[in-house]
Design a protein around this nucleic acid. Sequence first.
DNA 1: CATCAGGGCCCTG
DNA 2: CAGGGCCCTGAT
Length: 326
Amino acid sequence: MIDSSLELLDYQEITIKPLPPFSFTGTFCKPSHFPTPDINYGEKHYWQTLLFKDEFYGLKIINSGTIYDPQLSVKVYFDSSKNTNPDFSSIIDELSFRYDLFSDLSEFNEIFSDADQILSPVIDRWIGMRISTPYSLYEFTVVTTVLQNTTVHRTVQMMNNLFNNYGKKIIFDGKELFTFWSNEKITTVSEEELRSIKLGYRAKTLHRQANEFQEINENNLRKIVDSNILMTKLLEIYGIGPATVQYILSEVFHKYDLLTHISPWEQKIYSQLIHNEKLTEKNKLINEIDKRWGEWKMLAIHYIFEDLFWKRKEEKIEWLEDLINY
DNA sequence: CATCAGGGCCCTG
DNA sequence: CAGGGCCCTGAT
């Protein structure tokens, strides 16, 4: 790429105290997600880029607290030559929403941490974990679009092609990471060009979405309380169908009370974990999940899922390997 | 080599 | 409301 990289030397350190209990690792590190070149994490540190209100930022998030007295130290790197007065308080608000830092999960913990056979050992390990995302709705929609009808391997390839062509490479804290691009940028790119970076028919989807997002105000969508109303709105976006909308509802908007669709590979995983069998009928699974976890079902599923993928990092789980197509 | 399915969705009939 | 088409790639 001709576009040169941008080095961010100045930073401001801000402190956020999430609502306890809070799991740093559980909230920031998601082993079930595929890797992207805008994020990097280690034991106690997490780095990501951020495109926020047309400005590029680099974030280093440090766990400087404990589960019951949580604290995050966030170094916000910025481009002091152009961005002389960054709005740090808006950045704090945005991170708080995206990572769901202040939600109260005490009811969830109370109901399930002792009595629930499947959940209680998982909550034991991951108490305070949030369903979170580093992304805006637009960015998340791009991710889910390149996930559709393909293997993880090719998804990774498509994301890298997108970041290489439309992202901005920034350097901060010794890290070299790409930022996401704006939807405006994609509106100026032809569908043919998108096809040339091997997005296949998704080129059309991404192009239409970029245009549609000119009219979408994410902050207004965040104000919608009713999950069903929000779901209906989201389904109006081209390329968002029943599978994708579930991920968006829980990961972007932190709505946990809707489960209407189960994809084939997830069906196999739930069958194993809940009924200890190869394949349970979809409706039976949906009913069982609703009966067990009610209003909290998507959060419960997330806990179980991430726990499973953490285990997978330590030891191969045979029945699971077959379901993950790399 | 050729064929095919893969963490869906849109569109048509 | 069921089912074909969609792009590319690695597996067979």
